[in-house]
């Protein structure tokens, strides 16, 4: 052990040995320099089409977006406030509405939390290890995206319904899954599962395992490695996934509709309530709830843009 202690005692003598040539280090890239690649691909530099063509294309795109995205959004808010702000607030204050909002928040909280944990574990397994059946697992993760949400809901009815696979057993033990919060949460978890895993896998694959290996060789335990090295490296991607997962969890209609049972004031989430109210010609109340979901969408959009920017900046330039 005597040699170990001498490792750095002679630091000052060793200064002389340090190479001198690359001491003239380039200054850290300034904000302007970092922004340069961005301006390089800005529309200003892509003037490859004649003016009129550009004008037509841009007009088409803007018109399309206006008609199909902006207009509906305006209609939602306009209808919600058509009878004045008093009626709007009253509609949101209805016990049924409050119950739907509470249920939606509860289900989103459950499914986002669980998908956060499962998503990180799945992405970790796929990105950092090689094992047989890995491709199959990746395909499986995408399954909820490729299956119609109604089918996803139906699967749970077949599993937990009265005539379902576990139906008799559940009934015997007086456990309520279908037409209750657990069923809604399960269906939502299923439908939103891919978001976290999908946003992490490419990021973690690109980052590789070297930093984790370095941490372990420096004596870090598995948990220390995860919380000090892995998690900070993926935090923006993780937030991005959570954000999309949350937006989908709150907005999910099809799967939830199948398993919810539409019990008023009990198992109606916001999207379900919007439909019910609309079918009952309560347009203001319906659009008031819809406006909340629309606001959620707008906030999601803004946060998503910010996160995407952070993700881009977090991308370290490749070794030279």
């Amino acid at each position: 052990m005597s040699t170990q202690s001498s490792v750095v005692t002679s630091a000052t003598e060793l200064r002389a040995y340090a190479p001198t040539a690359d001491l003239t280090v380039s200054p850290p890239p300034s904000r302007i320099e970092r922004a340069r690649p961005r301006t390089g691909t800005s529309p200003d530099n892509l003037r490859t089409e004649p003016g009129p063509v550009r004008f037509i294309i841009i007009t088409l795109a803007v018109t399309f977006l206006s008609v199909f995205v902006v207009l509906p959004l305006v209609v939602v808010f306009a209808s919600a406030f058509s009878k004045g702000i008093g009626t709007y607030l009253a509609a949101l204050g209805e016990p049924e509405a409050l119950s739907a909002i509470k249920l939606t928040l509860l289900v989103a909280a459950i499914s986002v939390t669980l998908n956060l944990v499962f998503g990180v574990i799945a992405a970790w397994a796929i990105a950092k290890f090689d094992f047989t059946g890995k491709t199959f697992l990746i395909t499986l993760i995408d399954l909820p995206f490729s299956v119609s949400p109604v089918i996803s809901g139906l699967v749970f009815v077949l599993l937990f319904g009265a005539q379902g696979f576990f139906g008799t057993w559940l009934q015997a033990h007086d456990i309520h899954i279908l037409f209750a919060v657990p069923g809604i949460a399960l269906a939502t978890i299923f439908v939103t599962f891919p978001f976290v895993a999908r946003s992490l896998i490419p990021l973690m694959q690109e980052q590789g395992t070297q930093e984790e290996e370095a941490a372990i060789s420096l004596g870090a335990s598995g948990l220390q490695t995860f919380f000090r090295v892995t998690l900070p490296n993926i935090k923006w991607g993780l937030l991005y996934g959570v954000l999309l997962c949350n937006a989908r969890a709150m907005g999910e209609f099809g799967a939830v509709s199948v398993v919810s049972g539409h019990i008023r004031g009990e198992t109606n989430t916001m999207p379900l309530l919007v439909e019910i109210l609309y079918n009952e010609y309560q347009f203001v109340a319906s659009f008031a709830i819809a406006s909340l979901l629309a606001m959620l969408a707008l906030i999601t959009l803004v946060v998503k843009t910010v996160l995407e920017r952070r993700l881009d900046e977090g991308q370290e330039p490749r070794d030279h």
């Binding site: 930093e211 290996e213 370095a214 372990i216 060789s217």
Partner: peptide, 20 residues
């Protein structure tokens, strides 16, 4: 012993510095 208990200094080809 696992890598974290071997007390071995390892320098990686691509440095593997903690980027954050």
């Amino acid at each position: 012993r696992g890598a974290s208990e071997r007390h071995v200094g390892f320098v990686f080809q691509h440095y593997a510095l903690f980027r954050h």
